[in-house]
Design a protein around this nucleic acid. Structure first.
Length: 374
RNA sequence: GGAGGGGUGGGAGAGUGGCUAAAUCCAGCAGACUGUAAAUCUGCCCGCUUCGGCGUACGGUGGUUCGAAUCCACCCCCCUCCA
């Protein structure tokens, strides 16, 4: 009895569509998971996140352990209740911060010690502690602690890195199985930079350990879209067809479309939220920067046919004004619009796969956005 | 009329002989952002440019000096106070 399951309902080439079932709700795949690092999808009300079509969101072990603290969140009823998001939550392990906060951390076999970016205080994150924190938060899908190196990296260093991540994977699984609740899942993370032999070795070792889902980590870290797709091309075909595949931290719409075509089921990325706060909007015809002077007199909404208020009820001229004036509503509306755009994209991908028309969808997506994705 | 203070690039405002095409901030124009140290960061922002430079410029005119936004003379304008 796991309470966690993945069912593929249709395939189209390498692409699949289906449902991940959890006690807190279903996740339709391919899925995009908005990032809510510090217990909030920035600039969004949880109800509106849900209304865009999101089935699951992310939280972050590192940020939440520093503030407000995992034990405090647990005492307050867990992360779902704390942030008023009753649906599934996936928590990252802190592995990404091994890279993004590389100047503030020190790595050992035991784990990673961080100097808090908030107050400089020291914090040790081991695979066991990361799992404990994710359990305290009440996360539905937990991630093993891993090392996420940037590309380029020497083969020797990448080889040593995957071995460390694999040892941590074993320790993470042991810690998870001691106390996990029914319906919670722990995912292993495939590493290996852009080296085919290392990706294969990482994947095969993880599958021997055995996880209910597998993530592909360490991509979209400087290698470029073409190289990322090349790595996927020699990785996803060897992954367990019965388990969800999660491409961590990806990506822009064109990245997602290309990765779905290569058999990826789950995505997360800060792009729609961060870029939304910074004035960039994704539209049917590609990305635009709403702060550009050409929008000052544009009385059309971003998408008049949308069922999202942010996309439909506010003119580009107004959005432009809000950003120019430094008003908070600008980032709020653009974040909302972008999340809705992403969820519409995922819905369209699911529909296309179900209908066996993914190639047609991709062709029109390329034509309309000008994105090179294959 | 008298006394004092001041006029610097779109705005504010540093700079009181060479390191100054002139700090800094704002405004303006663009770009970046991929498991969020990000409502952030970067570039441009007098004209021309083959991006190496060249030309013009700190109220105006004239001077001193090898060299002036900076010193001197006169003129114009603004502000405060006194009449």
């Amino acid at each position: 009895m796991t309470g966690f399951s993945f069912t593929v309902s249709a395939t189209d080439g390498a692409a699949r569509t289906g449902v991940i079932a959890t006690p807190r709700g279903e996740i339709r795949t391919p899925a995009f998971m908005p990032v809510g690092t510090a217990g909030t999808v920035k600039a969004m009300f949880p109800e509106d996140v849900r209304a865009t079509g999101a089935d699951i969101i992310l939280g972050n072990t590192y940020h939440l352990m520093l503030r407000p603290g995992a034990e405090r969140v647990a005492a307050l009823g867990g992360l779902h209740r704390f942030m008023n998001w009753p649906r599934p939550i996936l928590t990252d392990s802190g592995g990404y911060q091994v890279m993004s906060l590389s100047s503030l951390r020190k790595m050992t076999e035991e784990g990673v010690s961080f100097a808090s970016h908030i107050d400089g205080s020291k914090h040790m994150l081991t695979p066991e502690r990361s799992i404990e924190i994710q359990r305290l938060l009440g996360s539905d899908i937990q991630m093993q602690l891993d090392e996420c190196p940037a590309i380029p990296i020497d083969h020797d260093k990448a080889a040593a890195s995957i071995q460390l991540s694999l040892r941590w994977a074993k320790r993470s699984k042991r810690a998870f199985e001691e106390k996990s609740k029914s319906g919670q899942a722990l995912f292993g993370i495939v590493q290996g930079a852009n080296y085919e032999d290392l990706r294969r070795e990482s994947l095969e070792t993880l599958m021997k350990i055995g996880f209910p889902g597998y993530a592909i980590g360490g991509l979209a870290v400087g290698e470029g879209r073409e190289e990322m797709f090349r790595v996927l091309d020699f990785t996803t075909p060897h992954m367990d067809k019965a388990k969800p595949r999660y491409l961590m931290g990806v990506g822009k719409p064109g990245d997602i479309v290309g990765a779905v075509a290569r058999g990826v089921d789950m995505f997360d990325c800060v792009a729609p939220t961060r870029s939304g706060r910074h004035g960039q909007a994704w539209t049917a015809t590609g990305a635009v920067n709403i702060t550009n002077a050409r929008f000052a007199d544009d009385n059309e909404p971003l998408d008049p046919a949308s069922d999202c208020p942010a996309s439909r009820d506010y003119s580009k001229a107004y959005l432009h004004h809000l950003f120019k004036a430094g008003e908070h509503l600008g980032p709020m509306l653009l974040t909302w619009h972008n999340l809705h755009y992403y969820q519409q994209l995922m819905a369209s991908l699911r529909d296309a796969i179900s209908a066996g028309k993914l190639a047609d969808f991709i062709a029109s997506f390329r034509a309309e956005t000008g994105e090179e994705i294959l």
